[in-house]
Design a protein around this nucleic acid. Structure first.
Length: 832
DNA sequence: CCAGGGGCGTTTTTT
DNA sequence: ACGCCCCTGG
């Protein structure tokens, strides 16, 4: 008795159907990795609309990243078209911003509040730590920040904290003072930090039940994705929204019995997988999902266990690893896709050796017809990207790094954004203080302090304080600079508020496009010109970043006609690492295991699978830390569709010096027969490694890795080249790339990376990664038939040349490793 | 007030 | 090894 039209249920397995069709107050979908949960969610939403069970405006679907929200919106749109308009499909944070923007005035903020990113919060906390001389109590900026964040995620504020804190401890007292000042300053600045967005929305609902009721009345169907990652504040928010609406007039009778429900609670659907909970460190509470049935009595639970993504070998490895977490609900992922290929394992001597293997395997996959965009490389920590990038550049493999230093965190971008932020919220001291010094214009800390004092005493905005600089008494030079800047802000403000230049008859009150406001600021401050005038080559890239920001603003204006600064600032504040993925066409994706969650790729490399790195050293001492790391490994494995590579190194440089690395315990949890070792950990040490085997041997069942002959594989001989091949110039040379003849021509790593970036931005296509300024192999003449010597591969013959100038690529066949593609300009090659 | 150099802390993961 | 912060000298 299907309620739904067949096309919404076509091709679904029975539990999937049930998850789409079930109707009731609460539904928990336990969705194993790759079990089609997004499909289930989108079809469930489409069903509600198609069946006329709900209006689009009654639907609230919540995800963790903008990327996931965008994908869900797109897929719902594919199913029901225009009817999807009016739904809220967004992240927790953007949904809360939307609510707060319209309700902020009720509790002392304005709708133009600023959203502080962690850098902004840090700047403020830093100031407070200094003011309270908290470092003498052992309080650091990051510890204070972490603690405040944690408290907010638990919905504590300074007041509630004070009630239960141990006030006889002076450290606690100082911390409390800082916490309280932080709250005061945020209020004065008209700003919220990331954690506030959620917590303040909960406070809003609790203090203004009638406000909460309007949202309860509106959202009749609430769906939450990645429920295992919700923290307490997010959990409370969902709870507030799913309360029944009560009759408040009756409640005024002081008789609780008169609190009659007048409207049922909204229906709640949550999707999650406790095996993929990897955000405990930022307050995610796994109990939110494991105790769902207790929280919502009568809840229906549906298990999705059939995996549609990976081969059986990959799933078996994933199941084996996660099976070592004892505190979990047993799940059995299965597939009908067949075994597929084995997992490939490789152990390098160093992270460079490991990276070289990754680069070579990527090339092999590519040669076999796999698109670069179908390949991803994962790692535990961002610092691991260096070695990987170096080898990818050298091998002329196009790649992009997701996450890492984000565009909007760059200093020059933050400088420019500070102007826009300050226009929207002239009471924000962080933005204002930032723009004063960018670019340098002679307004220093002294001048800033005087202005700030004046601003506070007069109760005016920072902008007005600047316009009245005469009343403070600065030297003529400083005063001039302040007045000029104040004038610029005033003009920009007028433009942002109403009518960029439109002055004819009807005074247009429409805001000017964001790009034009930004352009005015950049032009008048000459930020770009000043950067270009400097000698540091990095500054050219910075200037380009600012130009890029203008085009970002332009795109925004086109996408959101009539929208103003506020919308732009909100969007910029809430973009996340995984959101950048859109244009992954033709490039290999590098990212942390955390960023990888929710994504999938035909081929996946998990690198650095070593004790101390995965599991990370920091986690080993924490309660439950290793289990969370194991889930991280599980997430990584289950991203792979067909091919999985697991790599590690036997030595790894950290903090500047090199140490021995041991194979990860997780590696030993994968059954032997699933891995095809190109070079096992045992082989590395027994054949030329620098450490004794005993040091490298895994604990427990000894000898698992020891000296086992590598399996016959199509490329058995190539493993020779990776490690020991041209013994004289093997990985040792790689580890010290600056040594000797050819290598001395190479510039520093930074320079190369910068050039690669420049070229990638300029030409779009790869491999045009090298600028003209670098001195190296650029003029090396090569023609088909030439013999060459490569520092790592030994001798070979050139078979062809493609590309021109600095992006010339030599195709060569090496005696030891076979066919390779090399960027002439950067590869360690010599004609012989 | 600012530029450049030396010293120090850093690397767990992020909305 | 790197980047950031602080301090000094101009």
């Amino acid at each position: 008795m299907s309620l739904l039209s067949n096309d919404l249920l076509a091709g679904m397995n029975p539990p999937q159907r049930e998850a789409v069709e079930y109707r009731g107050p609460a539904l928990l979908i336990v969705a194993g990795a790759g079990s089609g949960k997004t499909r289930v969610l989108t079809h469930r939403i489409a069903g509600l609309i198609q069946n006329r069970e709900a209006w689009p405006s009654q639907i609230l679907a919540i995800t963790f990243t903008n990327k996931a929200a965008a994908e869900m919106r797109e897929r719902v749109e594919q199913l029901i078209g225009q009817a999807s308009r009016g739904m809220w499909i967004s992240t927790f944070h953007s949904a809360c911003v939307r609510i707060l923007r319209s309700e902020a005035e009720r509790f002392g903020f304005t709708k133009a509040f600023t959203i502080y990113d962690s850098g902004d919060s840090k700047a403020l906390i830093k100031r407070l730590v200094k003011q309270h001389e908290a470092d003498s109590y052992g309080l650091t900026v990051s510890s204070v920040m972490g603690r405040i964040s944690k408290l907010k995620n638990e919905l504590a504020d300074a007041e509630s904290f004070a009630r239960q804190a141990n006030m006889s401890d002076p450290v606690e007292r100082v911390f409390l003072e800082i916490f309280a000042s932080y709250e005061r300053e945020m209020r004065r600045a008209n700003a919220f930090d990331f954690d506030d967005l959620i917590a303040q929305t909960v406070f809003l609902f609790r203090s203004f039940p009638e406000v909460a009721d309007t949202y309860r009345r509106r959202f009749r169907h609430i769906l939450v994705d990645e429920y295992q990652d919700t923290n307490h504040a997010q959990y409370a928010l969902i709870h507030e929204l799913t309360r029944p609406i009560e009759d408040r007039i009756a409640a005024n009778d002081r008789s609780p019995a008169m609190l009659l429900p007048v409207m049922d609670a909204a229906s709640l659907t949550v999707v999650g997988d406790s095996d993929q909970s990897i955000y405990a460190f930022r307050g995610a509470d796994i109990r939110n999902i494991s105790e769902f049935e207790r929280d919502f009595p009568g809840a229906k639970v549906v298990l999705l266990e059939q995996n549609y993504r990976s081969t059986q070998n990959i799933l078996s490895a994933a199941n084996a690893v996660i099976g070592n977490n004892f505190d979990r609900l047993e799940k059995h992922l299965f597939t009908t896709a067949g075994d597929g290929q084995k997992i490939t394992g490789f152990t390098g001597y160093s992270q460079h050796d490991e990276a070289r293997f990754v680069a070579e395997e990527i090339e092999d996959l590519h040669r076999q017809g796999m698109a670069y965009g179908d390949i991803a490389v994962f790692y535990r920590t961002n610092s691991q990207t260096r070695a990987l990038e170096e080898l990818l550049i050298r091998s002329a493999i196009p790649y992009r790094v997701l996450g890492g230093t984000k565009f909007y965190e760059r200093a020059e971008i933050k400088d420019a954004m500070a102007y826009l932020t300050s226009l929207a919220n002239p009471y924000d001291p962080i933005a204002w203080s930032r723009l004063l010094g960018a670019p340098k214009r002679g307004i220093g800390p002294m001048a800033e302090a005087h202005l700030a004092m004046f601003q506070e005493a007069q109760g005016i905005s920072f902008h007005e304080a600047m316009r009245r600089a005469d009343e403070i008494g600065f030297g003529p030079k400083v005063r001039g600079a302040i007045l000029e800047l104040g004038g610029l802000l005033e003009r920009a403000m007028r433009m942002a508020l109403g009518g960029g230049g439109a002055d004819a008859e009807g005074q247009e009150k429409r805001p000017a496009p964001v790009a034009e406001v930004l352009k005015l600021i950049l032009d008048e401050t000459e930020m770009i010109e000043k950067l270009r005038a400097k000698r540091d080559p990095q500054d050219e890239a910075r200037a380009e970043n600012l130009e890029e920001l203008v085009s970002v603003a332009r795109e925004f204006d086109v996408r959101n006609p009539g929208a103003g600064l506020l919308e732009f600032l909100t969007e910029v504040s809430l973009v996340a690492a995984a959101d950048e993925l859109d244009d992954r066409s033709g490039t290999v994706s590098l990212m942390t295991l955390h960023t990888a969650k929710g994504l999938e790729f035909p081929a996946v490399f998990i690198t650095g699978v070593e004790e101390g790195l995965l599991p990370h050293q920091m986690s080993v001492d924490e309660v439950g830390g290793v289990n969370e790391e194991r889930r991280l490994m599980y997430v990584g494995i289950t991203r792979a569709r067909q091919r999985l590579f697991i790599t590690l190194a036997s030595t790894r440089a950290s903090y500047g010096d090199i140490g021995v690395a041991l194979p990860s315990r997780f590696l030993q949890e994968i059954p032997d027969h699933l891995i095809d070792w190109r070079q096992s950990p045992g082989e590395v040490t027994s054949r030329g490694g620098t450490e004794s085997r005993a040091l490298n041997a895994p604990r427990g069942e000894g000898g698992r890795y020891g000296g086992r002959p590598s399996r016959p594989s199509g490329r058995a001989e190539s493993s020779v080249a990776f490690g020991r091949g041209g013994a004289s110039s093997g990985s040792a040379a790689l580890a010290e790339p600056a040594s000797g003849g050819m290598q001395s021509a190479l510039d520093t790593w930074r320079e190369r990376k910068r050039l690669a970036k420049e070229a990638q931005a300029a030409g779009g296509g790869f491999p045009n990664m090298v600028g003209a300024s670098i001195r190296d192999n650029g003029d090396l003449e090569l023609a088909p038939g030439d013999r060459i010597r490569h520092e790592d591969y030994g001798e070979g013959r050139v078979t062809g040349i493609t590309g021109e100038g600095s992006k010339r690529v030599a195709h060569a066949v090496f005696d030891s490793v076979g066919e390779r593609k090399l960027l002439v300009k950067l590869s360690p090659i010599k004609k012989i």
